[in-house]
Design a binder for these strands. Structure first.
Lengths: 220, 220
DNA sequence: GTCTATATCGTGATAGAC
DNA sequence: GTCTATCACGATATAGAC
């Protein structure tokens, strides 16, 4: 399964960076070798060293690109407070469902558990780029606490759904996830939201049950 | 800093297993070496191989012990529904704060992000030992969905507080965490709970602010 | 049971021909 | 820019003396 882009004449350097991104996302930092990166990119291992200088430098390039691309928050923050939590959740999930951005997010997330640089970056991005702007935007009491709670919910969600792939989370449709977590997200940041009961029928137990079961009108 | 138990004459095998647990928790599977385990346990590297046969076997033993010890749920499930979420949250956190059990939990959690066996184990334990019993216990509609939501919240909480150590979460007192997340946990599994506003003053911004700021009477 | 010595392999990184 | 050959190192694992 060659994952190289096949429509634009991308540079070999870029090809290597993409291959490295996927491998770091899948195998972590230690589990990824220069040789494997080269093989996946279809180039010689020495070429990886020639372009980047070291494995650490490759990793830094990947992480930096992931950080650069991660700016989903601003577009969500302008708008009414009414369904802010739900919109934020949906925008967040959209990036995790996107095959283009998922490896970038995965590499940061997974590496944050084992590599110091990724861990530091995760803290910085989480605090500075997500929690703080969100807290600044909120007009409810104790906005920092609310932002932290919502961040925890999102992290737990992606951990189960995309990283560890716990069945009950991984098998849900996207709309089902939004329907389940949306009200809680809403509660956390605005204190509003109806959480009497999660919408039924959203757990993909029986085969053939698709995205039909999402009556909510929330769209991005 | 030698972490060997110094009050009981534990077997060398047990000594090795304890050292391995701490190292796997701290450095992950790939980052931990037989040599490092032996050094920390104060034995010869070959002895590790003699007792366990391979690094994988050491890892399995550690994981199995972690699973064996992880039975905090039953004692929480019998009792009233009133503050079930809060009690569950507190019991859960108590194990994470305990210096004896934290390495065991960390090793499972961290390894689940990089090692296939740990990942599988995490899924099994999460689904079978936590989510299912909890869902069976609930009398609210859609108990599975509620259990999954609560599980996500807990995972997100420990990720931020104990694994990646995001400041705003890691610096909170235990009571502050319970006060912040308790109402949400309550909401998730019972649909009850007051979430009008998180209790103020619980974020350890100023030095000297300890556990004083938790007026809630919930205890384990 | 315990340790020394070593086999075997895969890793990141380098040197240098073309 | 690209690739072959190779180094130096640390890993798991084994063989065998005591």
């Amino acid at each position: 399964m060659s994952a190289a882009a096949d429509d634009a004449p991308v540079s070999r350097r870029e090809l290597i960076r993409q291959a490295a991104t996927e491998l770091f996302a899948q195998c972590g930092f230690r589990g990824t070798t220069i040789r494997a990166i080269a093989e996946r990119a279809g180039v010689d291992p020495a070429l990886v060293m020639h372009y980047f200088g070291s494995k650490e430098k490759v990793f830094s390039a990947v992480i930096r690109e992931a950080m650069r691309a991660e700016t989903f928050l601003p577009e969500v923050l302008d708008g009414t407070d009414e369904d802010l939590g739900r919109r934020l959740l949906r925008a967040f999930l959209r990036r995790w469902e996107d095959p283009d951005t998922q490896p970038l997010l995965l590499v940061v997330f997974r590496s944050a558990m084992e590599h110091p640089e990724a861990s530091r970056l995760f803290r910085e991005v989480a605090s500075g780029e997500i929690l703080l702007p969100l807290a600044d935007r909120l007009e409810t009491p104790e906005p920092q606490l609310r932002a932290v709670a919502l961040g925890s919910l999102l992290v737990g969600l992606v951990s189960g759904r995309y990283v560890v792939r716990v069945e009950s989370l991984a098998d849900m449709t996207l709309d089902a996830v939004v329907d389940l977590f949306g009200p809680y997200a809403e509660q956390m940041i605005s204190g509003r939201g109806d959480v009497d009961a999660p919408v039924p029928g959203t757990l993909r137990g029986a085969p053939g049950v698709g995205a039909e079961s999402a009556p909510s009108g929330a769209r991005d």
